[in-house]
């Protein structure tokens, strides 16, 4: 295999991985803070794509068919606020009443929420795919023989900026400290004067907003969206979170990059129809061989 091809595979993997990463972060944040696998998270990504679609359709008359990256970023930010709010409402309505219920009940509720969102969109927008009203340009450049479009580069940079921003929030701010503290001991957090419910709401908002951003970017890049588009990427994000160590945010990003690269190389060798088989094979492999993931905490807690 020549070097240029290798580099191309790496770039493709990083590009797909940055999408997975944005979605995986929300998965991992929510798991970290309330130990819930939010299976509706992929559908928040789908809602992000539909929010962007709706906003762009409304705005199409104003901006024309070819959206500049700035317009798209503004649309993305609005969609992030929308999906963030939806995530927050989802937690309020579906998960908070079950806070002290067995974890299996909450998990089943999450699956129910996922279907509700999917078929809610299917009813309102119709079951057929919608075509995004704007396309991104195809102009590309080559680095060492590998091809990358400017749109891909811009989206990767946006994803990295969002990830770094989140990392800084979680590591340095008062809210971020509270999130980390709640993931360790929610009852002790009450005694610190932390309004645990409101921090959990904030976590859902931020995680859902990131998924929404990925949804808009995906719609603009691939051009087509449908009500089931969140299903597979939700599972992929879950896989990425597991590979990195679920609950660990840097792990989620690392897991997403690893998964993106694995898929990129896997499809190059086996053919693209094997992509999902390959990805979920790795999920099973990690769950059996290293369930704590690459960066996961060891689960030995001092009593």
């Amino acid at each position: 295999m020549d070097l240029e091809y290798l580099l191309q595979l790496i770039l493709n993997g990083l590009f797909v991985g940055s999408f997975y990463g944005l979605v995986a972060l929300g998965y991992s944040m929510v798991y970290g803070i309330i130990k819930l696998l939010n299976f509706a998270h992929g559908d928040i990504y789908m809602l992000g794509a539909f929010s962007g679609y709706t906003l762009l359709t409304i705005g199409a008359g104003v901006i024309g068919g070819q959206a500049s990256i700035i317009v798209l970023v503004v649309i993305m930010l609005i969609a992030m606020v929308l999906t963030g709010t939806i995530g927050l409402i989802l937690e309020r309505v579906a998960y908070r009443p079950l806070r002290s219920a067995p974890r299996l009940s909450v998990l089943i509720t999450a699956v129910g929420a996922s279907f509700a969102l999917e078929y809610g969109i299917a009813v309102s927008f119709g079951p057929n795919p919608r075509v995004y009203p704007v396309g991104l340009g195809n102009e590309s450049f080559t680095i060492f023989g590998a091809r990358l479009t400017y749109a891909q580069l811009a989206m990767m940079l946006i994803a990295v900026a969002l990830m770094v921003g989140l990392d800084q929030i979680v590591r340095r701010t008062r809210s971020g400290r509270a999130m980390r503290a709640i993931s360790q001991d929610p009852k002790a957090c009450l005694l610190m004067g932390i309004n645990v419910d409101s921090v959990i709401s904030r976590t859902f908002f931020v995680g859902s907003a990131l998924a929404g951003a990925a949804g808009v970017m995906s719609g603009a890049y691939y051009g087509k969206i449908d009500f089931l588009m969140g299903f597979i990427i939700g599972l992929k994000a879950f896989t990425a979170a597991v590979i990195g160590g679920i609950g660990n945010l840097r792990g989620a990003v690392l897991g997403a990059i690893v998964l993106g690269l694995l898929e990129s190389f896997g499809t190059a060798w086996l053919g693209s129809e094997w992509r999902d088989v390959f990805a979920f094979g790795f999920l099973i492999l990690f769950l059996t061989v290293r369930p704590t993931g690459l960066l996961g905490e060891r689960v030995t807690e001092r009593v």
Partner: peptide, 24 residues
Amino acid sequence: HVPEGRRIFSRLTVHENLQIGGYA
């Protein structure tokens, strides 16, 4: 309230634990 069994945040640093104490 300083709870029974201390309940410090074992994966936060000492300094962060103190900062969390001042959350309110």
